[in-house]
Every structure is written in structure tokens, then in C-alpha cells.
Amino acid sequence: MAHTLKRIFVTVGVLPFLLLAALVIFTLASDNFLTVQNLTNVVRQSVYLVIVSLGQMFALLTGGFDLSVGTTLAITSVVGALTMSTVAGMAPDMAWLAIVVGSIGGIAAGATIGVANGIGVAVFGVSPFIMTLGISSVGFGIALYLTGGTPVYGMPQTFGDVFGFGTLWGVPVPIYFAVLLIIVVWLIVNWTRLGRYFYAVGGNTKASTLSGINTKGVLFVTYIICATLTAIAGMLLTARLDTGEANIGASMPLESIAACIIGGVSLRGGVGRVENVVLGALFIVLVQNGMNLARIESYLQTVVLGGLLILAVIADRIRIRMMASLQD
């Protein structure tokens, strides 16, 4: 029995156990937790974190990380909302034109953050920590400058109705976006040459350079993918909030890194699976939802998040040790 449990733990990691524990604890703590409505809610709320975590995963795979995802969300939201409301103001009858132009503008602005990070990390060899920290200050400065600190209004009603609150066949629209992006990322990472390069560069940069991989190019693309995914999440979040805001996403860098690490992505690069990252993000939102229902105070919630992060790292170490002992 103990041996079987050990084998399961080594194969699937700590996350399924944590998920199970969370489900049991919160079901006992609150009657409203294990209901279809609440669980749908959890999935819908987790869309944004899932998408950002997918982006963060790329950065972690190559052995870096992106602290500027919060800023990317802010820039996307602000630029997208400003563009959309401007176009909507000029052509009030063509709501969809405003939505398309605004979304493209927002996502392009977000992707620019990734280009900047990519240039710094790949071309100039600046450490990802300093580069993304510096860029997050720059980006937040731009977002504040553009808005003057006030939310941006005036987007077409349709935008929020469809992309924020809309449902299709009973399922909220944002979930379709998340599922689509998960599939795309899964295909890229597992079935394309570029996808395998991320693992190679993160696993051993020098070896991959010597095997003829364009390491700098891969690193550059990494940060652009990360920022683009984050930007898509930013537009979806803007639709949900119905305003463009400079201060959305402040907690995103930590939460997305936590989701990846709980999902078994190695901080040293080269290790990580898409499906586990998705589960990791779901798990974080599930725990937050459960703690809200159980009326746990917000300061304790951040302690729990920090604690889970540390727990996940320890569990990962134990797992690697067990893996070695099972192979003997």
C-alpha cells in the first residue's frame, strides 16, 4: 500500500494530493463549496491566471522568469481600453470594429513589453530578474501616465457582454479562450521543434548552443510568447471589469510563478508540463475561493499561498529523491 502510494506520488507529483485535500477540507468547511455553480465560478475566475501561468511557464522553462506580467496586464488593459473607446467615439455604430481594433492595439502593446524583455535578456544578456523588474517599472509608469491613475471608460457595451460575461452553450466565453490557448500551447511545447528547444535551452544552455540551437533567438521568442499570452488574458480581464485600469494584475507575477511551481515546473529550467501548470493555476484559484467561502481573512490567505509554494518546492525535492530510490 505504502509502496503503491509512493509510486503514484513519484509519477504524478504532489498536486493531485493537494487538490484532493483542498476539495475535502473546503467541502467540510462550507456547504456552498461543492456546488456546480461555485465550481463553474472557480473555473471562470481561474481563466486569467491559467493563461498568464502558461506564459510564465515558457519563461521558467528557459531558466528565467517574468516579473513584468502584472505590468503587461496593465499596459494591455489601458492601451486596449483607450484605443477601443477612441474608435467607439469616432464610429459609434460599429462596435465590433472598435472591439477588434482595440483588442489588437492592447495585445500589441502587451507584446511590446515582451519584445523589450527579450532584447534585454537575449541580446544584452541582462539577468531576467533585473530586466523584467526594470521593465515592470517602465510599463507601470507608462500605464499611469496614459491614464493619470483613473480607470478608462467608454468601451462598447458589447465587449463586456460577450467577452466578459457572455456564455455559449451554457459555458462562459472566457473558458473557450483558455481551452483554445491551452491546446495551442500544449501543441507548441510538445509537438514542435521550437517547443523542444525551450526545454533544451533551460536544461543546458551551453549544450544547446553547441548543438546548433539559436539560443538567443529562443530566449527572445520566450519573452514575446509570455507577454502575448499575458496580453490576451489582459484583454479578457478588461472585458470582465468593463474598464481599463493601470493597477490590475499586481499580484499576478507571484501567483503565476506559484502556479507553475506548484504544477511541478522547475525553477532551474528545462522541466515542466502544460497540463500540470493548468492544474496548478486552478488549484490556486480553488484555494482562494474556498478560503473566501470559509471566511478566512485576507492576510492569512497570502500566508497560505506563500506556505503552499514552499510546500510544493519541498515535495518536489522529496519526489526526486524517491525517484532515485525507486530506480534502484
Binding site: 534585454g120 544584452f124 544578456g125 541582462v126 533585473i130 530586466m131 523588474l133 526594470g134 521593465i135 515592470s136 517599472s137 517602465v138 510599463g139 507601470f140 509608469g141 507608462i142 500605464a143 499611469l144 501616465y145 496614459l146 493619470g148 491613475g149
Partner: peptide
């Protein structure tokens, strides 16, 4: 000028200093 420009410049200066320092050492 407001807080936005201040944050922007702080970030840019850090990146600029690091990029220049890293370049000269290598």
C-alpha cells in the same frame, strides 16, 4: 511631471546602467 514618468525613468535608468555596465565588462 507625474508619478508615471518617474517610474518610467527609474526603470529605464536601471536597465540602461546594467546594459552599459554589462557591455563594458564583457
Amino acid at each position: 511631471l507625474g508619478a508615471g514618468v518617474r517610474l518610467l525613468l527609474t526603470g529605464l535608468i536601471i536597465i540602461a546602467v546594467i546594459t552599459l555596465a554589462g557591455g563594458s565588462r564583457s
